[in-house]
Computed example of a mutant assay.
Amino acid sequence: MLYHVTDWDDAYANGPHIPDADSYPPRWRAAAADFRATHPNEPLGRGHLFRPRGQPVGLAVFIHGGYWMRFGPPDWSHLAAGPLAASWAVALPAYTLAPEARIAQMTAEIARAIADAAGRVGGPIAITGHSAGGHLAARMICDDGTLPAAVAARVSACVPISALADLRPLMRTAMNDTLRIDAVEAATESPALLVPRMGIPLTAWVGGMERPEFIRQSRLLADLWAGLGAATDCVIDPGRHHFDVIEALAHPDSPLTRTLLSR
Rank of each mutant, 00 (worst) to 15 (best):
H4W: 15
D9F: 10
A11D: 04
A13K: 04
A13C: 06
A13Q: 09
N14I: 01
H17G: 04
A21L: 12
R27N: 12
R27K: 13
W28I: 14
W28Y: 15
A32I: 13
A32R: 09
A32E: 12
T38W: 08
H39S: 13
N41D: 07
P43K: 11
L44W: 06
L44Q: 09
L49Y: 05
L49F: 12
P52K: 08
P52I: 02
P52C: 05
P52V: 06
R53D: 14
Q55R: 14
V57Y: 12
V57D: 14
L59G: 04
L59V: 05
A60W: 04
I63F: 05
G66E: 01
Y67N: 06
M69Y: 02
M69S: 05
F71R: 03
F71G: 00
G72C: 04
G72H: 05
P73D: 09
L79E: 08
A80L: 14
P83Y: 07
L84C: 13
L84G: 03
S87L: 13
W88T: 15
A91L: 14
L92Q: 11
P93L: 08
Y95M: 01
A98W: 00
A101S: 13
A104P: 15
Q105G: 12
A108C: 09
A111D: 00
A117R: 07
R120Q: 05
V121S: 08
V121C: 11
G123E: 06
P124V: 03
I125F: 10
A132E: 03
G133K: 02
G134A: 06
G134Y: 01
R139C: 00
R139V: 02
M140Q: 06
I141D: 03
D143G: 00
T146L: 08
T146P: 04
A149W: 03
A149R: 06
A150C: 00
V155F: 04
C158P: 00
L167Q: 09
T173P: 03
T173A: 09
L179N: 11
I181P: 01
A183H: 10
V184D: 14
V184F: 10
A187T: 12
E189G: 01
S190M: 12
W205A: 02
I215T: 08
L221D: 05
A226F: 06
G227M: 11
L228D: 13
A230W: 00
D233R: 15
D233Y: 11
I236M: 08
G239N: 13
H241G: 03
H242V: 07
A248P: 07
L249V: 03
H251E: 14
P252K: 15
P255Y: 11
T257V: 09
R258H: 13
T259H: 09
L260K: 05
L261P: 02
